[in-house]
Nucleic acid binder design. Structure first.
Length: 798
DNA sequence: AGCACGCCGACT
DNA sequence: GTCGGCGTGCTC
């Protein structure tokens, strides 16, 4: 078994296979599947994952493995298998799926350096570089001295390239002080002269506290420094040791919380979950519970059961940075038995949290999408909270949906999955009705509070009545009321579908991105126009580039603008604005939310990010400024999204003692998604929307796959698209249909033209295989800069 | 991907 | 002749 099959760290179709390497003697006892190793690959030296060990290779002249990077595998047997499945499902490369499963820091970085092989003199500038370095940077040197010269030296054998694999891992260390045995300390104290007051104090301290202590802590506790410590160190009463510590992103202590008594509804929902846990049965539950119905408590108690079984739990939340309250509840209940993984952590922090899972130091992980790959080996349950959130689908390769991965892992581990939401996706709810998922319902709030009343305001009437502001009269009055009563307000500006673009009022000219077919967005902060798709940025013109008019106006409504308008109407209001700009800095999220919850502001104004999972006692009014802003987007899910958003944000009001009220401003008050959301009528919405999906043939009645073809040359894109279409037509079922090719909604991005095709199908068990064939068919073109992107079950049709 | 090799046109 | 640009093929 001394040959390793390795997936190499080269993301290319040509090498999407294992390569065999001889395992040298010194590594034979160490190497196991799932470990990262360093291997020679052509002239290079790169990393790879060991997939398995075999006795004999069918390949002659194997090269030897150079190094082993892990002591324990970073990928479990399950994850190795899962990655393979995922690559096939999403049409990605094995190396990409494996890397998606691991913290970013485990990805090796490569560097090349030059070393001299002889002592023969080199040209002057090179000699200089080698003066105080044994090795110099290849890239830097080539830049300064020129490719040709370096190559000559390599050919003559004076210089050679050294390939480096750099590990990015940095561990954090702490110095601790360890006292000697109690008897030793006491004995020393006996014969210590009375004059050594400091020493006496210190020894007495360690007789009292015999545990190791952190050096800095000791200094500050006893008000001493290194000089005081030295005599004790010399007498071996104390020893100093450097130990590795985990970075702790959650310094604060979490108050311990206890199990809450369950309502009858909650108990009923709990029962089948517990049953599945006991029977070790894979089942997918859809927990449909109105906001405030106590879904989280069900998660917590199910996990408690899992932990008692000695098993592990994964909890996915949309984006945990947005829900510090969720972390608080899990840490409060399970303490240090929880790892937390989310995007706001530094790479080092993420690695530390991941390692707690890998080392089995925790039994629970709460995290965003990628936490679904937590390397637990005894999974007892997987919970996906806010199941409908689009962030569970990754928008880059591998384009996986965490829900699909969860179900696959549930099958492997024979464990239940809970999908929880107040507004499940139509896909999931349909499966719940069909019995594919087991539907569990919570229809009442635990505090018996009624859902807040929702008022729909027709903004057309406001305009007719001469109100040209973005706040209806009713909302304005209510806000003033609220502030007077010392209660708080959440204002949601649903900005998707809006952007603040610059338009010339004289000739109608709109500044567009030179590389993409999209208008540029104005950023007030730096007074520039930016493109959201490429990194293009230009100065805001003083006059119109087309007609030289000075009348340039901004259209669209940003949070900045709303804030401005707000301070005009209610000058006394203290406003916290939360959007991408104000939350970019690390920890800004938590800071702003804490500020709001401490009532240091009256109004929390923000985008989508404030709609989810927040729970503030004192909020009694929620305002949705433009409920229909995304209703008109070219997306078949826009009604569903609108319904979800209004329902979710309404749930933010009146969660505690005070009753809440919601005001929804819209230009289309009669739209069923807005009307039914205001009545909290999910069932009716479901039926209405299902009817529409059926007649237009959209999910859940069909599955979708989106093919996007891009290239610099539009003709090329069109031609290839047509060819792909006819190729697929021959393969796909007669009932399946292909729409397009048509130009994508953003027809050009980063100077590449984009065409897309949508495939609607009910049953295509070999779809992935056909797609592989398409990719293979155009392998030549794809080498020449043609891109084919396959997205199965796409979220957006961009 | 990234590197070597080989072919062809351009230029001191 | 030599330099350098790019297309082609390979990596256990």
């Amino acid at each position: 078994m001394n040959v390793a099959k390795v997936i190499v760290d080269v993301p290319a179709t040509m090498v999407n296979q294992t390569f065999d390497y001889q395992i040298p003697k010194k590594f034979q006892a160490i190497v196991r599947p799932g470990m990262r190793v360093v291997i020679p690959f052509g002239p290079r030296k790169i990393t790879g994952f060991v997939i398995k060990r075999i006795d004999q290779s069918s390949f002659d002249g194997l090269k030897e493995m150079i190094d082993v990077l892990d002591l324990t595998p970073v990928l479990t047997a399950e994850l190795l298998q899962l990655g393979k499945w995922l690559a096939n499902q999403t049409l990605s490369l094995y190396i990409t799926t494996y890397q998606a499963m691991l913290p970013q820091i485990l990805k090796a970085k490569y560097k090349k350096e030059l070393i001299r092989l002889t002592e023969l003199p080199l040209q002057l500038d090179l000699e200089e570089k080698f003066l105080d370095n044994a090795a110099i940077s290849y890239d830097e040197t080539v830049q300064q001295i020129g490719h040709r010269t370096i190559q000559k030296y390599i050919e003559s054998g004076d210089l050679a390239i050294n390939y480096l694999v750099k590990s990015q891992i940095t561990k954090k260390y702490q110095t601790i002080v360890i006292p000697a045995e109690l008897s030793v300390l006491k004995a020393d104290l006996q014969q210590l002269s009375n004059r050594a007051k400091r020493q006496r104090e210190m020894i007495e301290f360690f007789i009292q506290h015999s545990d190791p202590i952190e050096l800095m802590e000791l200094y500050s506790k006893l008000n001493i420094n290194r000089t005081n410590l030295n005599p004790l160190l010399e007498r071996k009463l104390l020893t100093i040791k450097k130990v590795e510590v985990y970075r702790n992103p959650y310094e604060e202590e979490f108050p311990k919380t206890e199990k809450l008594p369950l309502t009858e509804e909650q108990r009923n929902a709990m029962e089948p979950i517990i049953e599945a846990l006991i029977k070790e049965e894979h089942k997918t539950f859809l927990l449909h519970g109105v906001t405030g119905s106590g879904k989280t408590e069900i998660y917590l108690q199910a996990i408690e059961k899992v932990m008692k079984q000695g098993k592990e739990a994964i909890v996915l939340v949309p984006e945990i940075a947005l829900t510090p309250q969720m972390v608080k509840r899990f840490k409060g209940r399970f303490g240090s038995n929880v790892a937390v993984l989310h995007s706001a952590l530094s790479v080092g922090e993420k690695y530390d949290e991941w390692r707690k899972i890998q080392q089995k130091e925790v039994q629970v992980v709460v995290g965003a999408r990628s936490a679904i790959f937590a390397p637990f080996e005894n999974l007892g349950i997987i919970i996906i909270d806010e199941e409908h959130e689009t962030t569970y689908k990754q928008e880059e390769t591998p384009r996986y949906h965490a829900r699909d991965v969860a179900i696959k892992r549930g099958e492997y581990n024979n464990c239940p999955i809970i999908l929880g939401s107040a507004t499940p996706t139509l896909e999931s709810f349909a499966r719940g009705k069909k019995g594919v998922y087991h539907l569990l319902t919570l229809s009442k709030r635990t505090n018996e509070q009624a859902m807040p009343t929702v008022d729909i305001i027709d903004m057309r009437d406001e305009l007719h009545a001469g109100n040209r502001t973005m706040f209806s009269r009713r909302l304005t009055d209510k806000m003033k009321d609220c502030i007077e009563k010392n209660e708080q307000i959440v204002l949601l500006l649903n900005r998707r579908g809006y952007s603040t673009f610059a338009l010339c009022r004289d000739c109608g000219y709109v500044e567009e991105c030179p590389n993409c077919d999209i208008s540029l967005t104005y950023h007030k902060r730096d007074n520039v126009l930016k493109c959201h798709y490429c990194s293009h940025e230009q100065k805001m013109p003083v006059e119109c580039p087309a007609c030289h008019s000075k009348h340039i106006r901004f259209f669209g409504t940003g949070t900045e603008k709303v804030e401005e308008a707000l301070t005009k109407i209610i000058p006394e209001a203290r406003v916290i604005r939360m959007d991408v700009d104000t939350t970019r800095k690390k920890g800004a999220h938590e800071r702003l939310l804490r500020k709001f919850s401490n009532h240091e502001a009256d109004i929390l104004l923000g985008t989508q990010m404030i709609a989810k999972g927040l729970d503030f006692e004192n909020v009694t009014l929620v305002g949705v400024l433009a409920a229909d802003s995304m209703l008109h987007l070219p997306d078949f899910r826009s009604s569903e999204k609108t319904f979800q958003l209004i329902t979710q944000v309404s749930g933010r009001a009146g969660r505690h003692e005070l009753t809440g009220e919601v005001i929804v401003q819209t230009y289309t008050p009669d739209h069923y998604s807005i009307e039914l959301a205001s009545k909290y009528d999910f069932q009716r919405f479901y039926q209405e929307e299902m009817n529409i999906r059926r007649s237009f043939l959209y999910p859940p009645y069909v599955f979708l796959a989106l093919l996007t073809i891009t290239h610099e040359n539009e003709m090329k894109v069109y031609e290839v698209s047509q060819k792909i279409r006819s190729l697929l037509e021959n393969k796909l079922h007669a009932q399946s249909s292909i729409l397009g090719p048509t130009p994508s909604p953003i027809a050009r991005m980063k100077n590449r033209y984009r065409y897309q095709m949508m495939i609607k199908y009910r049953n295509e068990p070999f779809l992935q295989q056909y797609m592989e064939e398409v990719l293979e068919q155009f392998a030549e073109e794809r080498k020449k800069d043609l891109q084919i992107i396959v997205d199965i079950n796409p979220n957006h049709l961009m």
